[in-house]
Design a protein around this nucleic acid. Structure first.
Lengths: 197, 197
DNA sequence: CGGTTCCTTGAGGATGATCAACGAGGGTGG
DNA sequence: CCACCCTCGTTGATCATCCTCAAGGAACCG
């Protein structure tokens, strides 16, 4: 699920190494490159004056990110940073647009990918409006579980409470208190601080 | 900015009349048709148990809507109703997918359209997280003004306070009180209950 | 003129945000 | 091996703010 690496290289893409927490692009920056992760992971997010953050997307090996602005001459709506040491392929905007135009299967791939993004963003806003913290958190957990695809069994949630807060627009303390309640009501299981859902 | 009507008809699209406030499709329904508005307007929204609503999108003459789920075999994330008497073209899912595949220019059109939707949804969630009512409202007003494209002059906002509330995830009273303050601080002008921004 | 729909205001309450403080665990360098 | 410093999780108290509920007024339309 990505553009073939050799193809990217043949069009002039360059791999670049990033340290942990390095900024790849900033909010309101003009979009000039297509990015695809070779190694590591990336977080796109917004933050406001009070330091509250909202995660717009998390990307892992093989994922591309930051494409939409390339197609519409817009600036990035969010900031992107690495969450660990990473290697990322960079391809210039005009080459990316040419690839899109020359390879129908790739264009189709992005069309489907975008459809998924729209769908998931719609669901996210829907849940966030539904303000009750517990709803928001469960929606986040569900979307994580859905991405994994499998199982109705309880799984370990690999996020810190702060990360969950950033994904749901809540504060850490609120997330912690919500989890305590959800533990009592058996909606999640907390074993040694680890969350199972 | 739409699929040519004659083309749609030639592929078997059918025009259907809807009364005001008629449901076109409901949340979680399986997506079977592509819709394009010939006349009237449509609102997509979610509502929760307490009756609070959140508008996901407003669509007018010429706009298509409800496409993303068609491409990814998903159900609709929101409900769609007409906001006035409307005539809407309906084309079956498989025909729509064939059109996408057979006309590269149409596929490209949707790719760009989707990119815009992703961009605007990203901006929306960003503003909503930023919870201050005033921020959310101004973000909504800005996005409306941007759609019109023109002018830095003050324009009349053609939405009721309830509609603005539904678009921002706030309550009517909160919207009203926020506008009062914004009136005092000259961020908007309110003349005879009408809002100018 | 009567009936909607929309707007407005006040009072009170619920709840998430804030602020402050602390404990536990892991890793690092001396 | 120990001291120190991170990051992460936790708890309690207080606060600010938006929501709720209730009621009434204004505007518009047939």
């Amino acid at each position: 699920m990505q553009i073939d690496q050799d193809l990217l290289y043949s069009w002039g893409a360059v791999a670049k190494k990033y340290k942990k927490n390095e900024v790849i692009f900033d909010e309101n920056e003009v979009a000039n490159y297509y990015y695809q992760i070779l190694e590591g992971s990336v977080r796109m997010y917004n933050s406001n004056e009070e330091g509250k953050e909202f995660t717009q997307g998390l990307f892992y090996i093989g994922d591309g990110f930051g494409e939409p602005p390339l197609l519409i001459d817009e600036t990035y709506p969010s900031k992107a940073i690495t969450t660990e040491e990473s290697t990322i392929l960079k391809l210039s905007k005009d080459k990316f647009l040419k690839i899109i135009d020359e390879y129908p299967s790739i264009q189709k791939y992005f069309l489907v990918l975008f459809a998924k993004k729209i769908h998931s963003k719609s669901k996210t806003s829907k849940e966030i409006i539904n303000q009750k913290p517990e709803y928001r958190i469960i929606a986040f957990l569900n979307s994580y579980k859905k991405k994994l695809g499998n199982s109705s069994e309880k799984i370990l949630i690999p996020y810190t409470r702060q990360e969950i807060a950033n994904n749901t627009g809540l504060r850490v303390e609120t997330v912690i208190r919500a989890f305590s309640k959800m533990n009592v009501s058996h909606k999640v299981e907390i074993i040694n601080h680890k969350i199972f859902y």
